[in-house]
Structures are given as structure tokens and as C-alpha cells.
Amino acid sequence: MRRRLFAVAGVLLLVSFAGCSMLSGPVTFSAKKATVGEQTLSETHYQEQSVNQSVITRNVSAAGQSKTVTVTNWIAQYDRAIDLGPLGSQRAAVFSVVATPQVDVLGKSFNPIGDYSRERIVMMLQSRYQSIDDVQHVGNYSTTMLGQNTTVGKFSAQAELVGGQSVDVYVHVTRVQVGDDYVLAVAVYPQRIDDTESQHVRTLIHGVEHADGDD
């Protein structure tokens, strides 16, 4: 059965939220920006591809009440070029960071990113691969992100590069809660460079930064 990346990572996205239910007026939730520090990018030879807000608006109804809820997430994407032999140089090593806020409205809790289809999330987080299928868990390891100990899941998968070339990849996924936000980190890279790239991923995870105030 075909499975995409976030079929496996879904448990990390479908989290329980806490907070105050809002009973009047429009409701807005905004995450604070999460990115990778410049020194870490220099050490790992990754470059910023984009740092953007993703705004989601939903109508939520319960107990005869209806609210319009607007949620603002931050999505930061980084990549670097690697030599894939006959396939040439490709920017196929990808690292993405998502910050998404806690949401609780009219007694209903939901995750704005968790509500997206798996396909849409994959396209949001990286544009170097058209698909990531046949995901298999290969192990876990511990590291730190934003000062917290976190477990990183590592998966093998079959991916298709933009352009149609097929390549075996590893996927790393982890998540921590920081204040009112959840911060998710996802890395994807060809298996042939695992010896070096697995260490780069650890460095990138450790180098994630989360804004202390509003931007």
C-alpha cells in the first residue's frame, strides 16, 4: 500500500491542544517564527529556500455557536546541492521547520496543519521531491531541539525528484512544544549520503531557533 511521509509522521501532528475557549468575536492564533540559525546553515552548507507564513481560516461550530478562526503558521525551508552521480547535481537534501500554534475554540481542539491532506503538507514542506512513498521505520535517536530532549524518528523511503528521477531517501521527523507553539522538523535526503548527512541533520535540528516575541 502506498504511504506518504506524513502517514507515518501523522502521530506527531495529531496532538492534543490546551488553551482557553473563545466565546465572542473573531478568533486568531499565531505561531512565532521558527528557523535555523545562520551559523548552523554555514556549518552544514544548507541555504535558505523560503521562510513564509501559512494562514488557514476555518469556521468552527459547537453548541449552537459558530466562530471564524484564523491560524497563522510559519514554514521555513532549506536545502543544499549534492552530487547524485548519473543524475548530476541536485538540491536534494532538504530540511524544513514548521511552527504551529495551539488551537482550542468552543471546546473543539484541532491542529491546523493536521487538517491538511498528506500531499499538501509534503508540498508545503519541500519542493524538491514530487512524492515520498513506501516509508519504513528504521530507528530512533535522541538529540536536543530548542533546549529540549527530543526523539527523532528515522525512516527509509522511495522518492521521486522533480523531473521524474527515482531515489532512495531517508526521512527524519521530530517535534517539541515551546510555549504555545509546536515546532516540527523534517529532513529528507538520498540514502547514498547518509554517512555525512545524518550528522548534518542532527546539527540542523540542534540549530533550530524560535522567536521569543512577535515579528
Rank of each mutant, 00 (worst) to 15 (best):
V71P: 02
S131V: 02
G85N: 10
L204R: 01
P86M: 10
G179H: 02
V208H: 00
Q136K: 15
Q136Y: 14
Q191L: 14
L84C: 03
Q177R: 10
G64R: 09
A211V: 00
K67T: 06
V208K: 00
G207P: 00
V176D: 07
E197I: 04
A7T: 12
H137A: 15
V27Y: 00
L41W: 09
A76E: 00
A157R: 09
F110T: 07
D83E: 14
G164D: 12
N111W: 12
N149K: 10
V162H: 10
G147N: 12
R120F: 11
L125G: 01
K67P: 07
A81K: 13
V183F: 01
F29P: 00
G107F: 13
Q126T: 06
L204M: 06
Y170A: 08
V201A: 06
V186D: 11
A187V: 02
Q158E: 14
V27N: 03
R202K: 15
T144E: 15
G19W: 09
C20L: 13
L13R: 00
S42F: 08
L5Y: 03
V178M: 09
T35F: 00
G207Q: 04
R4C: 06
V173K: 05
L5H: 00
R192I: 10
T144P: 03
Y170K: 09
S42Q: 15
D180V: 04
T40L: 03
V135M: 06
P190E: 08
V138R: 11
R58D: 14
K32T: 02
V183E: 03
V51K: 02
Q77R: 15
T72G: 04
T150E: 06
E43Y: 00
E43A: 13
E119F: 07
T35C: 02
Y116I: 06
A159V: 05
V138F: 08
G147A: 11
H45A: 13
P101C: 05
L5A: 08
G163I: 06
G213E: 10
G207C: 06
Y46L: 07
P112G: 03
I82R: 11
T35D: 01
A157N: 13
L87W: 07
S30P: 00
E43C: 02
P101F: 07
R120M: 07
Y78K: 10
V36L: 01
T150N: 01
L13H: 01
Q130K: 15
H200M: 08
T57N: 11
T143I: 07
Q102V: 09
Y189D: 02
G179A: 01
T196D: 13
D215N: 14
S166N: 15
A7K: 11
E160L: 11
G179Q: 01
V97D: 03
Q49H: 09
E209F: 02
V69N: 03
V178Y: 06
Q39W: 05
V178G: 01
